[in-house]
Design a protein around this nucleic acid. Structure first.
Lengths: 203, 203
DNA sequence: GTCTATATACAGATAGAC
DNA sequence: GTCTATCTGTATATAGAC
C-alpha cells in the first residue's frame, strides 16, 4: 500500500515529483525495458531504493508516469462549436498534431506500447485506445453534422471518413518517427491532408 | 569470425536453420528484449550454448532473423505494367496490405523498432525506411504517369498524394494493432481508402 | 556440432540503520 | 525519507568435455 498523496496536480518541489518527472522522461526516451530503476535514481539524484519506497514497484512507477503523459491530451469541445464544419475538421487535425508536436517523447512511448501488444500493462493500451476513440468520435460527429446541414456531400460515410483521417494522422506520425528523409516536413503533409479531406467531404 | 555458410537460400534441414527459424518467430512475437537465448534454444531443442556457437552473439542472431523477415517484401513491378493507373494504385494498396496480413508478427516487430528510435540496431531502421521509400516512390511514379497520360487530374501532387496514401496505410495498420474495437475491419477501411484516393486523383 | 557447467553482470526488490 | 548493503533471479557469454 505505502503512502498516499492528495496532491492531484504536481507541485514540482518534492523528491517524489522529481523522481516521477525523471522517470516519465526516461520511459519516454528509452522505453520501459531500457529504463532501470538505478538509472531513474541516478538522474533524479536519489538511490534506487528510494524510488521503490515511493512507488512500490517498477510497474507502478510506470503507471504513474503514464498518468502524467496522458493528462495533457484534452480537447476543448466548446471551443469548436462556433465554427462551421470544415473549419472544425481543420481545427481537430491541428489539435491532434499540436499534441503530437508538444509530446513527442510521450507519443513515441505510446507507439512503442502499441507495437508490442504486451502482456503486463494491458490496461494502458485501453486508455490510449479510448483516447483515439474519443477523437475519432469527435471527427465523426462533425462530419455527421456537416452532412445533415448540407454543407457536406450526402454520400459521405462519417465513421469511415473519420477513421481514414485518424489513420492518415497516425501514418504521418510514423513517417515522422522513421526519421523522414522523405522530402516533406510533416506540416506540409498535414496541410495537404486537410485540403484533400475537406475537398472530398464538401458538397 | 566463426564459420560461414554459402547457403543463400535456407534449406530447412540443418540445426542452424531450425534455430534461425525459431529465433525469427520468437523475435517477431515477443521482441528483441523479451526473447532470451535460453528460450530460443529450448524451443529449437538445442542448448543456448549452441545458439551462440552458430551466431556468435544475440545481436548477430537478431540481424540474421531480420534478414529472413524482410526478404518476402518484394514487389513485382512488371506485374503492374499492364494495368491502367487507377488499377495500379489499387493493386499497390492491396500488395501492401497483403504483406502486412501475412507478416503480422514481423510488422509488429518493425513497428516496435520504429517506435523506440533506438541506438544499437540503427541500421535496421534504415532498411525499413528504405522499404517504405521504395513503396512510396512506386506510388509516386504511378501517379505521375497518370497525370501525364491525362487519366489523373493535372493538379495532383504526386509526392504528396503518394505520401498521404502510405500514411493512411500505416495508420490503418496501427489501429489494427490497437485492438480495433472500432467497428470497421481493416479491409473495409482499405476499400474506402482506395475509393477516396482514386476519386481524388482521377480527372 | 553439441553438450554441461560456469563466469560475469545487472536487473528488481528487500532489510535495516539513520 | 533516505541511505547502504544484500538477496535473488535471470541474462549473455565462455570453457572445456565428448
Amino acid at each position: 500500500m505505502s503512502q498516499t498523496r492528495e496532491s492531484s496536480s504536481d507541485q514540482t518541489g518534492g523528491t517524489r515529483d522529481r523522481i516521477l518527472i525523471t522517470a516519465t522522461r526516461l520511459f519516454a526516451e528509452h522505453g520501459y525495458d531500457h529504463t532501470s530503476l538505478a538509472q531513474v535514481g541516478r538522474e533524479a539524484h536519489v538511490s534506487k531504493a528510494l524510488v521503490l519506497w515511493h512507488f512500490d514497484s517498477k510497474a507502478k512507477l510506470f503507471r504513474a508516469a503514464l498518468g502524467r503523459t496522458l493528462e495533457p491530451f484534452y480537447i476543448d469541445v466548446d471551443d469548436l462549436k462556433e465554427l462551421d464544419e470544415p473549419t472544425q475538421i481543420e481545427r481537430l487535425i491541428d489539435l491532434f498534431y499540436e499534441f503530437v508536436r508538444e509530446n513527442v517523447y510521450s507519443v513515441r512511448f505510446m507507439l512503442s506500447l502499441i507495437a508490442r501488444g504486451d502482456k503486463q500493462p494491458g490496461e494502458v493500451i485501453g486508455r490510449i485506445s479510448d483516447l483515439y476513440g474519443v477523437f475519432r468520435q469527435l471527427l465523426r460527429d462533425v462530419i455527421d453534422r456537416g452532412r445533415h446541414s448540407g454543407r457536406f456531400r450526402p454520400d459521405v460515410r462519417p465513421p469511415l471518413d473519420a477513421a481514414l483521417i485518424v489513420a492518415a494522422l497516425d501514418g504521418i506520425l510514423i513517417e515522422h518517427f522513421l526519421g523522414n528523409q522523405f522530402p516533406h516536413d510533416p506540416s506540409e503533409l498535414i496541410a495537404y491532408l486537410k485540403r484533400t479531406a475537406i475537398d472530398r467531404l464538401i458538397a
